[in-house]
Design a protein around this nucleic acid. Structure first.
Lengths: 120, 120
DNA sequence: TCTTTATTTAACCACTCGGTTAAATAACGG
DNA sequence: CCGTTATTTAACCGAGTGGTTAAATAAAGA
């Protein structure tokens, strides 16, 4: 099935190992072996993580002899941030409950005493 | 197992249905039934999505009679954005390859002709 | 009290995920 | 050509995910 880019990106970022790999790549491209070194897991496991990152476009891989260097390509993160930014006001004004309450009143949802129409 | 907050958040955001639910909640709190309406899936499925969102703190649930209204709490998104922001320069200067190249030269990684020391 | 409405829980299923080990592939260098 | 190094592929496994249907729970209202 075809899964959207944004979901792929968030899903790739949801793993601590992959985030650590991305962090490492901010200081320049490097080999798979070197990326694997800090992690207590097998090379194939790292290889799989790299594939996930590559699939969603967070890294690109070239070839230099035996070694296949990985490079950070942060573009997909922009989409993620753009999506999240639409919620900035919500986390910034999180205690400003009055405004939220007033907004809810306007949209006529739950709070305003939704009653079932009693006769008696 | 105990999974970190950031991973939980990214993982929760990785599903289109859950993102749609969050988007809906920006216009005020509402009931489970109403949240389910636009989606072609059963109520228990929505209930599970809501649990995921609640677990990572992206929504809170209260009680108003039969109905259990959900409310957006965007705070966890702040952590996500904070993490992503560290990569802003990387996606903004993505074509500025010269700078990247120079940085790689400095850190002495792959590119500078890593040779295996041939004798002949 | 009985029925309806709102929501969750339980049990199940196919599939994905994150890991493993063993084997395959590819390039280097002697 | 052969051995070493770098990396991926294959096959497997246990746990988690995202969905289902059927049943349980809880409050509202007649």
């Amino acid at each position: 099935m075809v899964i959207d880019q944004l979901s792929l990106t968030f899903s790739a970022l949801a793993d601590p190992t992959r985030r650590a790999i991305l962090a490492r790549l901010t200081s320049g491209q490097t080999s798979v072996t070197e990326l694997a070194a800090p992690h207590d897991m097998s090379l194939p496991a790292i290889s799989k993580h790299l594939r996930v990152l590559e699939t969603c476009g967070l890294i690109t891989r070239s070839r230099a002899g035996q070694v296949r260097p990985c490079q950070l390509t942060a573009e997909p993160m922009k989409n993620a941030v753009d999506w999240l930014e639409r919620y900035r006001q919500h986390w910034e004004q999180s205690f400003d409950r009055l405004e939220v309450y007033l907004k809810e009143l306007q949209t006529q949802k739950i709070p305003p005493r939704k009653r079932h129409g009693r006769k008696k």
